[in-house]
Design a protein around this nucleic acid. Structure first.
Lengths: 346, 346
DNA sequence: TTGAAAGCGCTAACAC
DNA sequence: GTGTTAGCGCTTTCAA
C-alpha cells in the first residue's frame, strides 16, 4: 500500500485512496465514499472530519475504479475527422470549444477519436464495445447519418448535431440550427436595404443542408413578391465555384445582392466583384454563412449567418444528461435559430 | 451475470467479458487475457480457439477494468482553451486533428479539457489526481509555461508543444517549430524576388515567439547586407494594428515587401494596400505566418509560413511513447522547420 | 503451456 | 448514520 511510503512534504508516489482517507478520518471506506457522493447521509460532524481528511490528503476518487464500479466513464465521444470542406471545420472548432466547456460544467469530458473518413462508422464500434465512453455526440450527419441508425440499434446513447434529413421523424435526440431561417433572415435583411434582385449561390442538389438554406432564400423572396427565376445557382463549395457562379449570374441576371450557402462561396463572389471593380457593400451586397474567421478578417467585412454554437452545445449536453439520467428522459429534438453578423459587405 | 440474458442475434444487454470468452473457448479467463496481451505464450491451437471465440462474441477488453488494473488510461490530456488570438486557433485546430490521428496509431485517445483561461494550471490537477490521463500535451506555452514546471514537480509525464522560452535548457520533452527559420525563409524568398526594402510587422516585445520570428527576418536581411533600420514595427496581433502599422511604414520607409508575424497582421497590410490602390504581389509583396484559412481564401492568395503540424504531432506522440515506455526513454527536444506556402501576394 | 488466487479502488446492497 | 461484505473485469503473481 501507499501509506507507509508516503513522506509528508514530498511528492506522493501514488495518489491517496479512499482507504487512506478513511484511516485518517477514523471512519470506514464506505463513509468516505458517502461523504463524496451522498454527503447528506452523514452526520455534520462526521462529514466535516472526512472532508478535512480529504483536503489534507488532496484526495480525488480514482477514475478507473469508479468507472469500473459504476459502469460509466463520464466521457463523451466525439469523432474529430480531418478537415472537411472549406470553412466548415472552423465551425466545428468553435463547436468543440463550446462542447468541452459545457460538458465540464455537467461533469463530463470530451474524448476525441478519429476514423477513416470514408467509413462513417469507424471508431464508434470499438469505443462502445470497450465501454470507453458513456455517449457520443455525432456531428457528421450531413451525408445522411448511418451512425445514428447504427447507434440506435446498438442502444448506444447519443445526440446528433444535425437533423436526420433522410428520416425527419427519427426518434433519437438531435440539435440543429435552422439554416432556412438563417438564409431567410439574410435575404430579408437585404430586401429591407432596398435590394430586389437577390441571387442565391448554394450547393448541389444532393445536399440536404444546402437545399434547406436555399429554401430560406426562396421563402423570403416569395414573401415579398420577388421573382427568383434565373437568380439561383448550385455549385461545389469552393471559392472558385463561387467566383464563376457569381460572374455568370451578374452577366445574365444582374443581381444587386448575393446570398450564399457558405462563406467560402461568398469569398468567390467578393473575388468576382474585385475583378470587375465593383465595391462589395456599396455596389453589390454579399452575405455568407458560418461567420468564419475569413468573414471577420476580409475587407470590407463579410456579413454572415452565425450559428449559435454555444447554445447548440448547451442543448446537446442537456439532451445527453437526459439520456444518461436516472431515470432517462425521452430524447428531444431541438431546432435553434441563427443570427446575422452584420459587416461591410451589406 | 450477462451470460443467460444474452439472446443470440439480438443486441446484447452488456458487452461480453473475459469470462464469457473463456467459457465459450473452454479455457480459463487467464488464458483469454494472455491470448489478447501475450499471444506468444499460447499453443497455436489454443490461441486459434480463443481468437475464434473472441471474434464470435465481438469481445473487446473493458477499458475501466483494464485501466484500474494497469494503472493507465491510454488517454492523453489536452487543454482546449477558448479561442485565443486571431488566426491562432485555426492552427490549434489543425494540430489537434493531427494529434488525434497520430495518437490513435499509437493506441491513445485524446481527452479534451478546459479551464479558466486566466489560470494556466486549471484542469491539470484534477485529471492528474484522479489518474484520468496518462500524460498531457501542453500547448499554451506562449506565455512562459508554469504548467511545465508544475507538472515536472508532480512528476507527471508531459510533452510541450512550444519551447520553454524562459528556461531554454529545461529538461522536459518539447517539440517546437523554428519560427525564426520560417521568417528567414520568407525574407530570403522576397530577397530572391528582387526586394530590398523589406519591412517587418511583428508582435510586442514581450512575446518570445514574436521576437524569435523577428530574428529570422533580421538574420536574412543582414545575411544579404540589407538595412533593417526604420523597417520594423511591433504591434498587437489584430487586423487593425497590421493596417495602421503598414500605413505608417509605407509612408516613412517605402518598403516593397512586408513580412508579418501572423496572417492576421498580413491581412491588415492587404487592407492598406487595397485602400491605396496598390496590388498585393505586383506592387508590394506580403508574407504572413500560419497558413490559415484566410491566407488560402483571400485574394490574391497570401503567401504564408506553414508550420509542419502533422510532423509536430508525430514527434509529440513519439516523445510521449518514450516517456510512458518501459523503461522510459529520456525526454527529447525537437525543433522542426516550417515551409513556405507560396501564393499570389508574393 | 495453462489455471487458481489475489487484488487494483471504488460503490451498491444490506446489516447493524 | 455507519460499517461490513461483495464484486465490477481485468492482469499479475505463482503454482500445477
Amino acid at each position: 500500500m501507499s501509506g507507509p511510503t508516503r513522506i509528508p512534504g514530498r511528492v506522493p508516489a501514488a495518489p491517496p485512496t479512499l482507504a487512506d482517507v478513511a484511516e485518517r478520518a477514523g471512519v470506514s471506506r464506505q463513509t468516505v465514499s458517502n461523504a463524496v457522493n451522498n454527503p447528506e447521509l452523514l452526520r455534520p460532524d462526521t462529514l466535516t472530519r472526512v472532508q478535512e481528511a480529504i483536503a489534507e490528503l488532496g484526495y480525488l476518487p480514482n477514475r478507473a475504479a469508479r468507472n469500473l464500479r459504476t459502469r460509466s466513464s463520464h466521457l463523451i465521444g466525439l469523432r474529430f475527422s480531418p478537415a472537411q470542406e472549406g470553412t466548415a471545420n472552423a465551425t466545428m472548432d468553435r463547436f468543440v470549444h463550446s462542447l468541452v466547456e459545457t460538458s465540464r460544467e455537467a461533469g463530463y469530458h470530451v474524448l476525441l477519436f478519429s476514423g477513416d473518413p470514408r467509413d462513417p462508422l469507424a471508431g464508434y464500434d470499438d469505443l462502445l464495445r470497450s465501454t470507453a465512453v458513456d455517449a457520443f455526440v455525432v456531428t457528421d450527419t450531413y451525408l445522411g447519418n448511418p451512425q445514428a441508425r447504427w447507434l440506435e440499434t446498438r442502444r448506444a446513447p447519443f445526440v446528433a448535431f444535425g437533423r436526420p434529413w433522410d428520416k425527419p421523424d427519427a426518434p433519437h435526440a438531435w440539435v440543429d440550427v435552422d439554416g432556412a431561417a438563417g438564409c431567410e433572415l439574410a435575404t430579408t435583411h437585404l430586401i429591407e436595404r432596398g435590394h430586389r434582385r437577390i441571387a442565391w449561390i448554394g450547393w448541389r442538389k444532393d445536399s440536404w443542408i444546402g437545399e434547406d438554406r436555399r429554401a430560406g432564400w426562396t421563402r423570403a423572396m416569395r414573401a415579398h413578391g420577388l421573382a427568383t427565376t434565373g437568380l439561383a445557382s448550385r455549385v461545389e463549395d469552393t471559392v472558385h465555384s463561387g467566383r464563376s457562379a457569381s460572374a455568370v449570374l451578374l452577366d445574365e441576371a444582374d443581381p444587386t445582392a448575393f446570398v450564399c450557402a457558405s462563406d467560402t462561396l461568398a469569398m468567390g463572389v467578393l473575388h468576382t466583384l474585385e475583378e470587375r471593380g465593383r465595391t462589395p457593400g456599396r455596389d453589390v451586397a454579399v452575405v455568407g454563412f458560418d461567420d468564419s474567421q475569413v468573414a471577420q478578417v476580409v475587407r470590407p467585412g463579410l456579413t454572415s449567418v452565425r450559428q449559435p454554437l454555444e447554445q447548440v452545445a448547451v442543448e446537446i449536453v442537456e439532451a445527453l444528461s437526459g439520456l444518461l439520467g436516472h431515470p432517462p428522459r425521452p430524447p428531444r429534438q431541438v431546432l435553434l435559430t441563427p443570427t446575422l453578423a452584420l459587416r461591410g459587405s451589406s
